[in-house]
Measured scan of single mutants.
Amino acid sequence: MRKLSDELLIESYFKATEMNLNRDFIELIENEIKRRSLGHIISV
């Protein structure tokens, strides 16, 4: 996760939620978004 750019991480989050991927996977992405202080972009 740390090698993904912020932009790609956010894009991955939206794609994963759109495709209804595994909730655990989405939570991993959400946690990384929060760690990077980007939660305001997706309202996490």
Rank of each mutant, 00 (worst) to 15 (best):
M1R: 02
M1F: 14
M1Y: 08
M1H: 04
M1S: 02
R2K: 12
R2N: 09
R2A: 15
R2Y: 12
R2V: 09
R2M: 15
R2Q: 15
K3S: 14
K3R: 08
K3M: 10
K3H: 14
L4Y: 09
L4V: 05
L4D: 01
L4R: 02
L4A: 04
S5R: 04
S5H: 03
S5L: 04
S5V: 04
S5G: 05
D6G: 03
D6R: 04
D6H: 04
D6F: 06
D6W: 07
D6C: 06
E7Y: 11
E7R: 12
E7K: 13
E7V: 10
L8G: 08
L9S: 00
L9V: 03
I10S: 02
I10W: 05
I10G: 01
I10T: 03
I10C: 04
I10E: 02
I10D: 01
E11M: 15
E11Q: 14
E11S: 09
E11L: 15
E11R: 14
S12R: 07
S12W: 15
S12I: 15
Y13I: 02
Y13V: 01
Y13T: 00
Y13K: 01
Y13F: 09
Y13S: 00
Y13M: 02
F14R: 12
F14D: 03
F14L: 10
F14E: 04
K15T: 08
A16D: 01
A16T: 03
A16Q: 04
A16N: 03
A16C: 06
A16S: 06
A16W: 08
T17P: 03
T17R: 15
T17G: 06
T17M: 15
E18M: 11
E18K: 10
E18R: 12
M19N: 08
M19I: 05
M19E: 08
M19C: 09
M19K: 06
M19G: 07
M19Y: 07
M19Q: 09
N20E: 07
N20K: 10
N20R: 09
N20Q: 11
N20M: 10
N20L: 08
N20H: 10
L21M: 12
L21G: 06
L21Q: 07
L21S: 09
L21W: 12
N22W: 08
N22R: 11
N22A: 14
N22K: 08
N22T: 10
R23W: 09
R23Y: 08
R23H: 10
R23I: 08
R23F: 07
R23K: 11
D24W: 15
D24S: 12
D24R: 10
F25N: 04
F25M: 11
F25E: 07
F25K: 05
F25V: 09
I26E: 01
I26N: 01
I26K: 03
E27W: 10
E27F: 10
L28K: 06
I29L: 13
I29T: 01
I29S: 00
I29E: 00
I29N: 00
E30P: 00
E30N: 05
E30M: 15
E30C: 11
E30R: 13
E30G: 06
E30F: 14
E30T: 12
N31I: 11
N31G: 08
N31E: 12
N31K: 11
N31Y: 12
N31P: 01
E32M: 02
E32S: 01
E32N: 01
E32V: 02
I33R: 00
I33G: 00
I33Y: 01
I33E: 00
I33M: 13
I33D: 00
K34C: 07
K34F: 14
K34V: 08
K34P: 00
R35S: 05
R35I: 05
R35E: 03
R35D: 03
R35H: 04
R35Q: 04
R36C: 00
R36G: 00
R36V: 01
R36N: 00
R36L: 02
R36D: 00
S37H: 13
S37M: 13
S37E: 09
S37I: 05
S37N: 13
S37L: 13
L38S: 01
L38H: 02
L38D: 01
L38A: 02
G39D: 11
G39Y: 15
G39R: 06
G39A: 11
H40W: 14
H40R: 06
H40D: 06
H40Q: 06
H40I: 07
I41P: 04
I41E: 06
I41F: 12
I41L: 15
I41T: 06
I42G: 04
I42S: 04
S43T: 14
S43A: 13
S43D: 12
S43N: 13
S43W: 06
S43Y: 07
V44Y: 09
V44T: 13
V44A: 14
V44E: 13
V44D: 13
V44N: 14
V44L: 14
